[in-house]
Design a protein around this nucleic acid. Structure first.
Lengths: 120, 120, 120, 120
DNA sequence: GTGGTCTAGACCACT
DNA sequence: GTGGTCTAGACCACC
């Protein structure tokens, strides 16, 4: 058994940016902070941020204009797509965690239903 | 921003043991491996395992006989209680994660429903 | 026969702190010395003090602010409660010790009474 | 602060023997076990037991006949005297402990009284 | 600077 | 051989 499964920092920052896109905190086409700026804000090495932007571009979430900056892709579908992917991860984690505790899908539904009733 | 949300090793191992109890992999009253044994198996320092067993005893999940070993509590209710507590945590994590992505409880229900249909 | 009835160091230090709270030497809400400071003062390893503060927090005698310090709980009732618990222990030890010497409760009362008269 | 205040083993064994005399488990004039025998029973070095008997003799609790054995003193008063001395220690410990917790002698009396009522 | 965790290795008490 | 305690020293996260 290994007991250190932390996500690398660059992935955590990527997730944070994606979440901001999903929630509309940053809009399609909007400029993201400079590498140096974000490095300072996140208390992280600029190389790490460079990697963040490189990977985001590879995933076609952002695009980069050399000497100018990094922008959120203008493709409007990106929001929806990101939301689905990230939600999928959360759902899978939930399903796995509950299955490991011996719960069936029906029981999971009931638990969510109970939350709904609690909210009312 | 926080870029480290890992549980400490001793808690991860506690969770692993609790999960084993919930699933019936270890029965009430059954002896758990010795600290040194589990330390070796888990590639972890014996002190860390000592802490695991100390905290589990505090939570009345196990009991300890000095010079003999650590045993799962004989109280049959423990299984049920642990299941509820641990499931509660997984559910809360799910709810929070999905809310952060802008999902409503209804949408979460639909996603689980879709999983159910996938399974059939 | 057992020839070692010493409390572990960490418990002795816990008792010392509790006693200080009971006597008002430290007030509710007051900051306790840092682990490293107290470790130096007590000529004890910082890990041992860490355990002291961890257990005190578990008993809700103190609370901890990560990166700031450890404080006596603000709940005013703590003083009274601690006093009762600790006095109970002293009384039980007394009762047991005297019973082992063949004294009755009446005789114990007389001895305390004699102390009272001595004082006057 | 020092946190190791264990009584030396030889004193603990002396106390045990005195307690037995007080309670009449061994009678005045009765023979005590041999050094070797008691050493084995107590899992202790024979030199330690030799010291026990030497000190008990010095306190005139026992007397020794060379080549024969060690005996409880025939003086009938010894029982009473030992009881008083040992009880005095227990009482002093109690008084000090309670004073450190801020209790008055009256309050101590009340607590003992409460024990008496509990017993009935 | 604070507390929190972990390792390495030691010694002790109990069986 | 078991768990319980302690030390020494290290690294991390938070403020």
């Amino acid at each position: 058994m290994k007991y250190n499964n932390n996500l690398p920092i660059y992935m955590q920052i990527m997730d944070k940016i994606k979440k901001d896109i999903v929630l509309g905190n940053v809009q399609p086409g909007e400029k993201l902070p400079s590498t140096k700026q974000l490095a300072q804000d996140s208390q992280v090495n600029p190389n790490t941020i460079a990697r963040v932007y490189r990977e985001l571009e590879r995933e076609e979430v952002t695009f980069t204009q050399r000497g100018v900056g990094t922008y959120v892709t203008k493709n409007e579908g990106v929001r929806k797509k990101l939301q689905e992917i990230m939600a999928g991860k959360v759902v899978q984690q939930f399903l796995q965690g509950m299955k490991e505790l011996g719960f069936s899908l029906e029981e999971m539904q009931e638990l969510i239903q109970r939350e709904k009733e609690k909210e009312e």
